[in-house]
């Protein structure tokens, strides 16, 4: 399946929220949909799910107009809640029925996921009797009921302990492998990097980056290298390099210096220069930015 979000515009009370938002999601690859708070992620998702109509643009699935009512979409919103005083299985079935799943199927699926999340003992308990982490698992279960074709997870790991996080990771990997269409959003970039082959970055209602994550990393990491010395600390090394070669753009992280080589220089040449300058090399490698770096750079560019 290929879901295309095409040229979506949306405004509220005269204020434009989404400006020509376009990106594509395909099955078998999770899409990391990233953005700062208030960037327009939730508005895009709500427009996709037909909570309200976009002012312009289309949602297209495999070349045909996308009607969310015809699909089972499992949605886990970032700000989420369920009925505290209702029995867990009852409300899981209720939410599933509202999405068009038959009662018997919803019940069977609800019981399966509660068992999978080791909460089957609590199926007839009220939600408020569970701990916060277990309540989160129930919320995740409601998104998975009925084997949805499309899964949208927004901060799914929030509130989960490491053991439960691992359970959820296994579920997400399973769904990706099953060929489901998965849209994943989180501010914890390590999770996004772990699951997502594709990313789309939205800022102030505009898509500022979209594509394959590895390709983006390679592109943004081009002409950059990591360097660490045995006989100089990072500060001294930076000074040495500044004297050694003109036009070097040097930054650093906790691991090493990050050097942006100018166009008139290359890795081999630079290595020779370092050795000539008496620098004993501990580490030299091509640099790949982390998703956090990419996020900060790109969003920073938008604000510049």
């Amino acid at each position: 399946m290929k879901l295309e979000i095409k040229n979506i515009h949306k405004s509220f009370s005269g204020k434009q929220i989404l400006h020509d938002v376009s990106f594509t999601v395909t099955t078998g690859k999770a899409m990391g949909f990233l953005g700062r708070n208030g960037a327009g992620k939730t508005t895009t998702i709500r427009a996709l799910m037909d909570v309200f109509k976009a002012d312009a643009g289309h949602f297209v699935l495999d070349g045909k107009p996308f009607d969310p009512r015809k699909f089972n979409i499992g949605y886990l919103p970032e700000e989420r809640g369920m009925y505290a005083k209702e029995k867990i299985l009852n409300q899981l079935v209720y939410f599933a029925e509202l999405r068009g799943i038959k009662k018997a199927a919803a019940k069977a699926s609800g019981e399966y996921w509660l068992k999978r999340f080791e909460l089957d003992y609590a199926k007839n308990h009220k939600l408020e009797t569970l701990s916060k982490g277990n309540q989160q698992k129930v919320q995740i279960a409601q998104a998975l009921i009925g084997d949805p074709d499309i899964l949208i997870f927004d901060e799914p790991f929030s509130g989960l302990d490491p053991v439960n996080s691992q359970v959820l990771k296994d579920v997400i990997r399973e769904k990706i492998a099953e060929g489901k269409l998965v849209i994943f959003s989180s501010h914890q970039m390590t999770y996004v990097e772990e699951f997502c082959d594709e990313i789309t970055l939205i800022e102030k209602g505009r898509i500022i980056l979209s594509g394959n994550l590895d390709e983006i990393k390679n592109e943004l990491g081009k002409s950059k290298i990591r360097l660490k010395s045995l006989n100089f600390d990072n500060g001294e090394l930076k000074e040495k390099l500044m004297h050694m070669a003109q036009g070097l753009d040097i930054s650093q992280d906790k691991h090493s210096l990050i050097i942006h080589l100018p166009e008139n220089n290359n890795l081999s040449n630079f290595l020779r220069q370092c050795l000539s300058a008496g620098i004993d090399i501990e580490l030299i490698s091509p640099y790949q930015p982390s998703l956090t770096d990419i996020f900060i750079w790109k969003v920073g560019e938008e604000h510049a």
Binding site: R46, M49, V51, I73, Y75, P77, E79, R80, G81, M82, Y83, A84, F95, L98, R99, Q142
Partner: peptide, 12 residues
């Protein structure tokens, strides 16, 4: 208040 509405409006 407890954000159950987020699930409801995307379900129906």
């Amino acid at each position: 208040d407890n954000r159950t509405m987020e699930l409801l409006i995307t379900s129906t």
